[in-house]
Amino acid sequence: MNPLGPIRHTTIGVPTTTHHQVDARTAHYPALLTPDERERIITRCEITGGNHVSGPVAHGGTLTGYPITEQLLGADILNRLWHTVAHASQVTLGWHIPLDTAGFAVSSYGPGDRMGAHIDDDVRGNPPWDLPHRGLSISLPLNGGYQGGRLRLRDADGDWTTPDVNPGDAFVFGTSLEHEVLPVVSGRRWVLLFFAFTNFSQRLIR
């Protein structure tokens, strides 16, 4: 029995460059965080404050980033995130590789904010065709009540696909899969981001 509940996965994505191929599958883990847990993370971020970023940092967009600590997340939530990427890697995606290095942050998007098209391999500052690792990203929306701000990913035909993800759901995809966040029209979008990498010399190639 899967302790994380029902899982939905599909095949999307195309290579983001001509230098490599990407594993195009994704996994969707519903209700990973409770409403109280999500509200607590947002409140703690509002108390500590964030940094508004734009331009290259936001891939041509604008947003407010909140660097967070393990203490802010709490051991239970952090363990669930690790469990999720491990399950996605070993079971849902069938990679069968260890993921042993992590990074996480909270992003907030107000009206007009967006994130331009990018791949998360860039968070290590390496070009995607020369990576000493492969990895998984989790995008976990923390709230609803806003308009716009949808996450989109490239589909197999090179078109954009928008996954149906609810607040508290964990949406998992390979760090070499191109994606973007559309502009927020009204309200404020909060999202928890978790990146897990392996240090082994393997590229995101099937």
Score class of each variant (00 low, 15 high):
Pro3Asn: 06
Leu4Ala: 10
Gly5Cys: 12
Ile7Gln: 14
Ile7Ser: 07
Arg8Tyr: 09
Thr11Cys: 02
Ile12Ala: 13
Ile12Asp: 05
Thr18Cys: 01
His19Ser: 15
Asp23Phe: 04
Ala27Ser: 15
Tyr29Asp: 03
Thr34Asp: 13
Pro35Ala: 13
Glu46Arg: 15
Thr48Tyr: 08
Val57Pro: 00
Ala58Gln: 11
Leu63Tyr: 13
Ile68Tyr: 10
Ile68Glu: 12
Gln71His: 09
Gln71Met: 04
Ala75Asp: 15
Asp76Phe: 09
Ile77Ala: 10
Ala86Ser: 08
His87Glu: 12
Val91Trp: 03
Thr92Arg: 01
His96Lys: 11
Leu99Asp: 00
Ala102Arg: 02
Phe104Asp: 00
Val106Tyr: 07
Ser108Ile: 00
Met115Asp: 00
Met115Arg: 02
Ala117Lys: 02
Ile119Leu: 02
Gly125Trp: 06
Asn126Val: 12
Pro127Arg: 10
Pro127Ile: 08
Pro128Ser: 11
Pro132His: 03
Pro141Leu: 05
Leu142Thr: 08
Gly144His: 08
Gly148Cys: 12
Leu151Asn: 07
Leu153Val: 11
Leu153Ile: 08
Arg154Glu: 12
Trp160Glu: 06
Thr161Phe: 08
Pro163Asn: 09
Val165Glu: 04
Pro167Trp: 05
Phe171Ser: 03
Phe173Asp: 00
Gly174Pro: 04
Thr175Asp: 05
Thr175Gln: 07
Ser176Ile: 00
Ser176Val: 01
Leu182Gln: 14
Pro183His: 01
Val184Leu: 14
Val184Gly: 14
Gly187Leu: 09
Leu192Asp: 06
Phe197Gln: 07
Phe197Gly: 00
Phe200Ala: 14
Ser201Leu: 10
Ser201Trp: 08
